[in-house]
């Protein structure tokens, strides 16, 4: 190849310009392509957190897997939680490839989770004490996840966009799995209906927090501007939260459930939902692993990791091909 036109010969500045041109032109960046450090680091942070949240997110619903009330529900929730582990697999693979230049792999991701370096999503720090929570997670937490994940389907990073495509296709099943549980309860006995309402009350604040603070002035940690700049996502946290309200509030009300926020209403003038802000200082605490279930769920992951260490050890030294 003629050196004069070789990409490797370009200055960092020229490479950056070339990179920006590519993402502006909607072409996809691949794992082995040159990318600015800031882009790589933003992706690693975003995708490893997304991936580990899927893995940690399997745990609250998993509590209900052995307890699901019928054969069909047992099978359905097993398949649903399995998918979440599968989403973790897809996303961690994407993150691991991005970390490779730093000499890091899955081992490091797990260690970072245990040390608290790597955070997981606020909703998965919360309690799920009843069967209705299993349904509500599928319906509304997955519903919220669908809103944020579809927003990144066209992400400039090709491997992430492809993983999200697979994930979103499965989320459609998750949402319906959740709706089916919730609908059965909402149409059931008084106790069953109360169970759903309780669960909605319990999860409300966590659902509002799901999309993150409206802007960095709230917590000082918002990464949304960088992800928009690099064409990883298009909408802001607040836009996503509003989308969620628009899609789900009418459905929640149609089942005869009460919103835990009496002040909430759609404001015709601004075209926006007005709602009571959750306690963002609590949000900051929760994602620092100080939520009600942070410790015990991390403990579960750690036990599983350590108890099975011998398996990975045993097969590490084996040569390929029997």
């Amino acid at each position: 190849m003629d050196n004069a036109i070789s990409f490797e010969m370009l200055t960092e500045e020229e490479k950056y310009k070339h990179f920006i041109e590519r993402i502006e032109a909607k072409s996809k960046i691949e794992a082995d392509d040159w990318m600015p450090e800031e882009y790589r680091k933003t992706l690693i942070k975003l995708i490893s957190m997304h991936g580990i949240s899927e893995i940690m997110g399997a745990l609250p619903e998993k509590e209900w897997v052995p307890k699901a009330p019928s054969l069909k529900r047992k099978l359905g929730i097993m398949a649903k939680v399995q998918d979440e582990m599968g989403h973790g697999q897809l996303l961690l693979r994407v993150a691991e490839d991005l970390m490779k230049p730093y000499g890091k792999n899955r081992e490091n991701i797990m260690q970072d989770l245990f040390t608290g370096e790597l955070k997981f999503h606020n909703v998965f720090h919360m309690e799920a004490p009843t069967w209705a929570d299993a349904g509500l997670i599928g319906w509304l937490v997955d519903g919220a996840a669908i809103i944020t994940q579809t927003n990144m389907l066209d992400a400039s990073y090709g491997p992430y966009a492809r993983a999200l495509k697979r994930i979103c296709a499965e989320e459609v099943f998750h949402a319906q799995h959740g709706e089916s549980i919730i609908m059965a309860l909402a149409e059931g006995t008084a106790e069953q209906r109360a169970m759903v309402q309780d669960s909605l009350n319990r999860w409300w604040e966590a659902l509002l927090m799901f999309f993150g603070p409206g802007d960095s002035s709230t917590t000082g940690t918002s990464k949304q501007d960088i992800t928009i700049k690099y064409h990883i996502r298009t909408k802001t946290n607040e836009q996503l939260r509003q989308d969620f309200f628009t899609k789900y509030i009418p459905r929640v009300l149609s089942l005869g459930l009460k919103l835990p926020d009496e002040s909430m209403r759609f404001d015709d003038e601004s075209g926006k939902w007005l709602y009571r802000q959750p306690d963002w200082s609590r949000f900051k605490e929760i994602i620092k692993n100080k939520g009600p279930k942070s410790e015990s769920r991390l403990r579960l992951r750690k036990i599983s990791y350590e108890t099975n260490e011998w398996v990975r050890e045993a097969l590490s030294s084996r040569s390929s091909g029997m």
Partner: peptide, 23 residues
């Protein structure tokens, strides 16, 4: 389809279908 981590080809093969072709 996609990539996965495994200690060797045999285990990669027995995990492949369920990870990427469940449906």
């Amino acid at each position: 389809q996609f990539s996965l981590l495994a200690p060797n080809a045999e285990l990669a093969l027995v995990m492949a279908q369920e990870n990427f072709l469940r449906r």
